[in-house]
Amino acid sequence: MLIAIIAACEIGFWVVLGAGLLARYPLRMRRLGGLLLLCVPLIDVVLLVATVLDLRRGAEAGFAHGLSAAYLGYSIAFGHSMVRWADERFAHRFADGPPPRGKPRGGRARTRYEWREFGKAAVATAIACGLLVGMIAMVGDAGRTEALWGWTARLGLVLAIWAIWPVSHTLWPAEPGGQQSDR
């Protein structure tokens, strides 16, 4: 059941984001669009409440609970930049806004970009691990929460792999120049 709620929250994120941008630009209803965009974080609250309720009802913490924490961490850390990414593209397409910014192709700007993205991933991991530890403490039964400890290791591995990009751009920076790539 929790997996379905996670999937619904992911779909809901994009639906609410799309509805907000659609209202804001093609329909020119800026207030409604802004209100819908402000509702995007409420989807995270729905998932958090569903996860806590499931654990409070006595469910054994499993894969879905860990995935929920990971989703929440990454959604909180990357959500704003994802909304900004989509907003830039909608503004360009429907409101004669400037061309969207892409990630730098090389040089120091690309290295800074990669470290900034890694920083967001580190924040996401910290949030997710904090939620996992909070769930473990809330349940208070090591037997029911064993799977959650495994998630902290998974998230640490993801972060370690992610670190390859900024480290490689720091040690072997690409030549600056050229156009920016879209991301």
Results as ranks from 00 to 15, higher is better:
63 F>Q: 14
77 A>V: 02
59 A>G: 08
87 D>Q: 11
153 A>G: 09
129 C>G: 09
178 G>M: 06
44 D>W: 04
79 G>N: 02
103 K>F: 15
65 H>D: 06
145 T>F: 02
29 M>V: 09
28 R>L: 14
147 A>T: 06
153 A>R: 10
110 R>F: 05
155 L>K: 00
37 L>C: 05
65 H>T: 05
91 A>E: 08
41 P>M: 05
173 P>M: 03
62 G>D: 08
41 P>V: 05
1 M>F: 13
68 S>T: 05
82 M>F: 11
142 A>S: 14
37 L>W: 02
181 S>F: 15
181 S>Y: 14
152 T>Y: 09
21 L>A: 03
150 G>P: 01
100 P>M: 05
57 R>M: 12
66 G>L: 00
48 L>F: 11
73 G>K: 00
123 V>A: 05
37 L>N: 02
89 R>I: 04
123 V>G: 00
91 A>K: 04
31 R>K: 12
74 Y>M: 06
55 L>N: 00
67 L>P: 03
40 V>T: 04
156 G>M: 05
29 M>W: 10
179 Q>L: 12
50 A>C: 11
30 R>Y: 09
51 T>N: 06
11 I>W: 03
178 G>F: 04
150 G>M: 03
108 R>S: 15
148 L>T: 04
164 I>V: 14
64 A>P: 04
48 L>G: 08
47 L>W: 00
86 A>H: 07
158 V>E: 07
96 D>I: 10
44 D>E: 10
96 D>M: 13
89 R>G: 03
26 P>G: 07
24 R>T: 08
101 R>M: 10
14 W>T: 10
149 W>R: 13
22 L>G: 12
24 R>G: 06
112 R>T: 10
83 V>E: 03
78 F>C: 06
101 R>Q: 13
